[in-house]
Nucleic acid binder design. Structure first.
Lengths: 145, 145
DNA sequence: TATTGTTATACTCTATAACTATA
DNA sequence: TATAGTTATAGAGTATAACAATA
């Protein structure tokens, strides 16, 4: 046998553990970028969701949390001038949450800083980028990701 | 031009957004598995770290949080009989946190349930497994992952 | 002097339940 | 009746500061 044995492919459990490490690192870096602007992780996540004006209810659904939590988080973001509550002309029960200009700026700063911590992404070739996207989208059953 | 244009490879920003989705899905599933045993996300994470007995201080470092937080979380896990505080014979300042038998069982149950939500992993071939591991370990700079 | 762990404090996040305004 | 959002409440996570015990 002169052939070189390739390294064993990782098991599902090993991949799960690696995914846990990566998910933890992602949130650690996200929280750091948010904290640099005086925001908590949840406040930063909330801002990141507001690419378009959205009802409080939708934000609760996206965060998979109770609607009552959103009230407090939006309260604090509004007090800091990062978001606004606007009336929905079509349904007066609904309040649309909108980013202010400072809110937009803050989101962009957080995303830019996070992107620098993900420097490894820039070095990937086209094939790796396609594969990575396919793998990331495919590991959780439809609807869970 | 009769050739088929391949789909454009995702940009770094698109991959970052996909990673955010996947990280969120991971913790959502983890929290669900922990909640099924009456545990919070942090309590579940703490148990998962205890593959070996560890000083409180090490747990704080691994969770990237202040040491004072660990006291409360371990208090609640100890009150439920899932962990024990043991003296370190070599350094009496240190308390080693150890899983009880029920704690071990609980960790294994959570991991098993989480693995079923990651059913997509089982379908990956050897090449995809190697690539996925390489990509997950490479996107954060050394020390941040 | 430095380190480990705890306590006290204040703030944030979280789910539950009850409430209002609107549909 | 049902839905959107708020309030009140209690429990959990979080950082800061101060402390006791040990190194």
């Amino acid at each position: 046998m002169t052939s070189i044995t390739p390294p064993a492919a990782p098991t599902s459990v090993e991949l799960m553990d690696q995914l846990a490490q990566t998910a933890a690192a992602y949130y650690r870096n996200f929280a750091t970028a948010a904290a640099a602007r005086g925001l908590t992780l949840m406040q930063g996540k909330m801002l990141s969701l507001l690419r378009r004006p959205m009802p409080m209810r939708s934000l609760a659904d996206l965060l998979a949390c109770d609607a009552s939590n959103v009230t407090g988080i939006i309260d604090r973001l509004e007090a800091r001038g990062l978001v606004r509550r606007e009336a929905d002309p079509a349904d007066r029960r609904i309040k649309r949450v909108t980013l202010t200009e400072e809110g937009e700026r803050t989101v962009q700063e957080i995303r830019a800083e996070l992107l620098t911590t993900l420097s490894g992404l820039d070095d990937l070739g086209e094939q790796d980028r396609r594969t990575f996207q396919r793998l990331l989208t495919g590991i959780f059953p439809a609807g869970a990701a």
